[in-house]
Amino acid sequence: MVNRKRLDPTESTAALFGAKLRKLRDEAGLSQAQLAEAIGYSNDTISKVETAAQAPSPQLAEHIDAHFGTGDTFQELQPLAAKEGIPTFFRPYADLESGANSIRVYEPVVVTGLLQIEEYARAVLSPGQHVNTIDLAVDARMNRQRVLERKEPPWVVIVMLESVIRKEVGDREITKAQLARVLELSNEPYINILVVPDGAQVFPAAGFTLFTLDDDPEIAFVESAGGTGRVIEPAPRVAELRRLWDLIVGSALTDVASQNLIREVMEGL
């Protein structure tokens, strides 16, 4: 009890979620370990959620409500808490990503977030992040990947430059593990990962994503300087980006050749 982190529920929704959970747990006379065992989670998860170091998952919120008989209280807070590790400018992207039927990503800098392992994400996100927010930012990125676990996941095509897979991020072991994850996901029937080889026609340095939602026209998200970006609604500019996308894909290796190149780079680390 002496080393307990003080909680300010007004700081954020994640902090409010954690404060409410701690209060209920204390009133029930349960330790974090006892609650974790009762609802089927690790002690570490309960601790991090209570201190807002980790965003709660939808499943955890549901189990907490069921255990304490709190109706939908925690389930209603969960989506807001989960978004807080995502920068404000990027939240429209995350919303589009979570509801899209198809996602087409052009990535010229690093392995895209949907494919990142935790260690790689931490290395990418750490520069410029306050030490108190990095855990929440990494967790939010990992939560985004749940879209790939849906019963009917979106069709995903990711095109990245060869320089992306050759770039060492974190250290060699992290980069090697990341490339292994990319290869693993490339075997999923709904994911295509293509590499544009060095020496191909030069394309814009900024990445972009094209989303399809149901039968609606495509919507684009274009990355900008400083890690920011903006959504582009259906307009001639989206059609221009689709034409650019087609040109980029036309310069990429086939999926099999891309896998072979990724494997070659990974084995050479």
Rank of each mutant, 00 (worst) to 15 (best):
G85P: 11
Q259N: 13
N260K: 14
A137R: 08
I191E: 01
E188Y: 02
L213P: 10
I262E: 03
G69Q: 05
I191L: 00
E11K: 00
N43W: 10
R104H: 13
T209I: 15
A66Q: 07
P236E: 14
I165F: 04
P236G: 14
L96D: 03
D72Q: 08
E50T: 04
L161I: 13
H67A: 06
E149L: 04
K151W: 02
F90G: 05
F208G: 11
E152C: 15
G199R: 03
E149Y: 00
G128D: 05
R263Q: 11
D26N: 11
P127I: 15
M1K: 14
T254E: 09
S186T: 00
G229L: 13
V231D: 05
P79A: 11
R146L: 02
A66W: 09
V49E: 14
N101F: 14
V111P: 01
P58V: 11
S224K: 12
L148H: 02
K20I: 04
K20A: 02
N101Y: 09
A137I: 06
S186K: 03
Q116K: 08
R230V: 13
E168I: 12
L77M: 09
Q59T: 09
L125W: 04
D198Q: 07
D246C: 13
L241V: 11
E267K: 05
A38I: 06
G40M: 00
H130M: 07
A225C: 11
R104P: 07
I64Y: 04
D216G: 09
L269V: 08
R150K: 15
S57Q: 05
E11C: 03
E152H: 12
G40N: 00
E27F: 05
L148K: 02
D216P: 00
S31K: 03
L136E: 08
G29N: 11
R22N: 03
A53Q: 09
L261Q: 06
R181Q: 15
M142W: 15
R104A: 10
M1R: 15
Q259M: 12
P87W: 12
S251Y: 12
N43M: 08
L194A: 03
A121E: 05
T88P: 08
I174Q: 03
N260C: 10
E233R: 13
E119K: 04
S102P: 09
G227K: 02
A66R: 12
V138R: 09
F68S: 05
N101G: 11
E62L: 14
T175C: 05
T10F: 01
P154K: 06
A123N: 00
L96S: 05
V169P: 07
A140F: 14
I174M: 00
E264V: 01
S42E: 08
V238F: 12
F68N: 05
I86Q: 13
P87D: 00
Q34T: 10
V231Q: 07
G69N: 04
I193E: 02
R237K: 11
T13P: 06
L261E: 07
L136Q: 11
V105E: 10
R237Q: 15
T254Q: 06
A220H: 15
L96N: 01
G128L: 15
I134C: 10
F74D: 07
E168H: 11
E162H: 07
A123S: 03
R6V: 14
D214Q: 14
L136D: 07
R242S: 09
A235R: 13
P197L: 02
V265H: 11
Q75P: 08
A100N: 09
V124P: 05
E264D: 12
I165Q: 06
Q201F: 13
A36C: 06
